[in-house]
């Protein structure tokens, strides 16, 4: 089980999402892929916070990844991207914890205007590292009853989260957060999935 990215973002009343801080652990990916994968994780996290209603939780499957998302009543949200082995309850408990700590450090009026580069929240990276360890996760499962009873909605693909008529390919195309290289990476990856031989 692995965790790849942990993100805190604010969803304003106008629906716009402001990424406040993101932490990544991408050492298991190839050297040349890391940059693009990082951009894609941020891109996906943003989409998910955008499409998740206030006061709700979801776990979204996408290929071999699962993205856990929680957006609170006050618009503050967090996304954790891991693999399918990582326990859902532990992931959502971690999201709660991260949001609580972030709130203790930055008060709500700041969320809409803070820039990611100005946010000093090293705990995010620490949590991402600490929770890689299943032993740590194990201790968490024992206090899972602390997790509120908000139901976790399950989706089988990211496409299922999108609104009617929206296509992931279009969103990728339009995105400003993704570099040319990452868009090319997305396209070739799609192509090579259909046919494993590049020749």
């Amino acid at each position: 089980m692995r965790l790849f990215a942990l993100t805190v973002a604010y969803k304003g009343s106008d629906g716009k999402v402001n990424q406040l801080k993101a932490a990544h652990e991408l050492s298991s990916f190839g050297y040349f892929q890391r940059g693009s994968i990082r951009e894609f994780m941020d891109f996906t996290s943003k989409i998910l916070v955008e499409r998740t209603a206030l006061c709700s939780r979801a776990s979204v499957k996408e290929q071999e990844y699962i993205c856990h998302v929680y957006v609170r009543r006050d618009g503050l949200g967090a996304v954790l991207i891991g693999d399918h082995e990582y326990q859902q309850r532990v992931a959502h408990t971690l999201l709660n914890k991260v949001l609580d700590e972030f709130t203790a450090k930055y008060s709500s009026p700041q969320w809409a205007i803070l820039k990611e580069s100005d946010v000093n929240f090293p705990q995010l990276q620490d949590y991402l590292q600490k929770y890689q360890n299943p032993k740590e996760a194990d201790a968490m499962t024992k206090i899972q009853s602390e997790l509120d009873e908000t139901k976790i909605i399950l989706h089988n693909t990211i496409e299922a989260v999108l609104q009617r008529g929206e296509k992931l390919d279009d969103l990728v195309d339009k995105s400003e957060g993704l570099s040319m290289q990452s868009k090319a990476f997305y396209k070739t990856a799609k192509k090579t999935n259909q046919c494993c031989i590049i020749l």
């Binding site: 050297y31 040349f32 396209k187 590049i198």
Partner: peptide, 22 residues
């Protein structure tokens, strides 16, 4: 100690298609 194919499908301005870093 590692290599990969980069997602560049068209040759670009005569530069070498090989990249060597770290």
């Amino acid at each position: 100690d590692e290599y990969d194919f980069l997602p560049v499908t068209e040759p670009q301005n005569n530069a070498s298609p090989l990249l060597l870093v770290e």
